[in-house]
Amino acid sequence: MATKDPGLPRPEPAAPGPAPTDRRPGREAGGAAEVVGWFGAVQSQDYHPAKWSVAQRLGPGVTDVDLDRAFDDGVILRTHVLRPTWHFVAPADLRWLLELTAPRVHVLNGYAYRRGELYGPLLRRATDLVADAVAGANHLTRAELAASLARHGVVAERFRLGYILIHAELEGVICSGPLRGKQHTYALLDERVPRAASLEREAALAELVRRFFTSHGPATAKDLAWWSSLTLADIATGLRLAGDALERLDVDGVTYWSAPGEAPAPAGCPSVRLLQAYDEYIVGYRQSKHLLDLGGLVAAAPDRLALPNGVIVVDTQVAGRWRRTVRAGAVVLEAALYRPFGAAETAALRVAADELGMFLGARAVISASLL
């Protein structure tokens, strides 16, 4: 069975909205919504590395500054959806994704709500206060929202503040606003995202199931359950409704789903990708994650917890770890390899490092070592 390719997506991606299309994701920062929509959503609790994940699917020439600008302009948004963490979401998808998955995320947040003594009436009042504070394009930082809540007698600090804001996001009241320097702001969702027709629940299930297995396949229902927080019963319904849009493959008693069509033929030269730790190629899987390490290199690596958390992938297999350090005019790439690289792989690592340097507007310097 072919493993997943972290590079440019296959043909026949999904459009940013619910309707399918045969367009490929865009190749400039303005196409960021198409890349994010093709995946369904892109995990982004670590904002800067998450931009690198999007840029890798857009192609060469897109810079970190370009994606900041696209984010400020609302081309992609950032909110809590699917799981109790931030994701980039295309504006056209945000509402129906929230309607489908927010109830499940609220359940997962239940312990945290209780721990913070954040019960129904208080959460509803705090959400209303947050909405009033950011209305009229009055984009506010977390600290400013905490101060606003405090003025109304709501204690909102650290952990408690975080879950008040997560609740407001899941309720479809707020989402990301533009950056203010290096600080993130919140905006009223209704002012950031045009009103759109909702999807019926079954249609939303079919759409999310189709998008996940098209962009992440081959993958399993348990992979999708992890990624989306949906129940296996909901996923079974979505698979039934997706119909011929997906195909199944049974291997060693495990069923894998993907979009129809042959896996891309391997390139003549090795391909090296520098993936951030929460790239969809890494975090989108639980049951089938072993397909990234068919050679057992990760399992055999010493002192795994002390390694950099970026992942080096050669073709479809994990082959090392990496981290970046940005200095004046240069980005130093520290690469810890699980096995020796040949000449062609070393050259491909140089290309990948140069792509990272171009994205950051800095000269790339490689410091490689063998574990």
Rank of each mutant, 00 (worst) to 15 (best):
R10H: 15
G17S: 12
G30Q: 14
G30P: 11
G31R: 15
W38V: 04
A41I: 05
H48V: 15
W52K: 12
D66Q: 08
D66N: 06
A70E: 05
A70S: 06
R78K: 03
T79Q: 09
H80G: 02
V81E: 00
T85P: 04
H87L: 04
W96I: 00
L98W: 00
V105Y: 02
H106F: 08
L108V: 13
G110E: 15
G116D: 07
Y119G: 10
T127F: 13
V130F: 08
V134M: 01
R142L: 05
A146I: 08
F159T: 09
I164Y: 00
I164Q: 02
E169Y: 08
L170G: 05
P178T: 10
H184W: 09
E191M: 06
R192K: 09
V193R: 07
R195P: 06
S198N: 03
R210C: 13
F212P: 00
S215A: 07
K222I: 12
W226T: 08
D234F: 00
L239T: 10
R240V: 07
L241H: 03
R248N: 11
V251H: 12
E262N: 13
A263K: 05
P270F: 10
R273S: 14
Q276I: 14
Q276D: 14
Y278S: 14
V283S: 05
R286T: 06
Q287N: 07
L292F: 02
G295Y: 07
A306Y: 10
G310Y: 03
I312D: 12
D315P: 11
T316A: 12
R323F: 02
A335L: 05
F341N: 09
E345Y: 08
L356V: 09
G357L: 13
G361Q: 07
A362N: 06
A364P: 00
A368F: 05
